[in-house]
Amino acid sequence: MNIFRLSGDMTHLMSVIVLLLKIHTIKSCAGISLKTQELYALVFATRYLDIFTDFVSVYNTIMKLIFLATSFSIVWYMRHHKIVRRSYDKEQDTFRHLFLILPCLILALVVNEKFTFKEVMWTFSLYVEAVAILPQLVLLQRTKNIDNLTGQYVFLLGAYRALYILNWIYRYLTEKHFVHWITWISGLVQTLLYADFFYYYINSWKNNVRLQLPA
C-alpha cells in the first residue's frame, strides 16, 4: 500500500459518500445519471467476484463491501425511492449504456491476461469503469445547472483514478515485474475522459463562478 493508492481509495470513497449524502439528505438525484450509477454497480459486481474466496486484507474486504453496498443502494434509491426517483430526469439521461457494455465484454474476451471466467470478468470491469462516466458527462452537458455536489462528485471520481495512475507509476518503480498494461491503459483512458471536465471545473473554482460546461 502506498500513499497514492490510499489517497486514491479515500477519494473514491469520498465521491460515493458525497453522492449518497446528496441523495439521502436532500432526497434529490437531479443531475445524476442513473446509467453511470448502474455501470458502476456492474463494475463492482464483476470485479469483486472473489471477495469471499481470495482474502487480501481486512481493509480490502471492507472497502469492497462499502463500494458494493453504496453503488447498489444508489441505484436502488434512484429507481425505487418514491421521492428521489421523481427528481431523476430520465428524458435527459438517455445514454444507451448497452452500447458501452457489449464492446467492453467483447474486448475483455479478446484482450485479457488469462482466459478464465474470473480474469475476463475482472478485465471487463476495468473496461466498463473506464467508460462508465460517459453518460454522466453527457448529462452534465445537457443539464446546464450543475449543482456543486454533483460537480464535487464527478471531480472526486476523476481524481481517484488519477491518483491510481501515480500509484501504478510508484509500484512499477518499486516492485520488480509490476507490469499491467491492460489496467494502465484503461485507467489512463478513464482519466483522460475527465480532462475537459477537470479543465472547466478548476476554472470555475478559480474564477469562483458557477460550473458551466460548453454545449
Partner: peptide, 10 residues
C-alpha cells in the same frame, strides 16, 4: 506471485 499481489487493488 505478481498475479495475487496485483489483485490487491480495489
Amino acid at each position: 506471485e505478481t498475479e495475487s499481489s496485483f489483485k490487491d487493488e480495489l
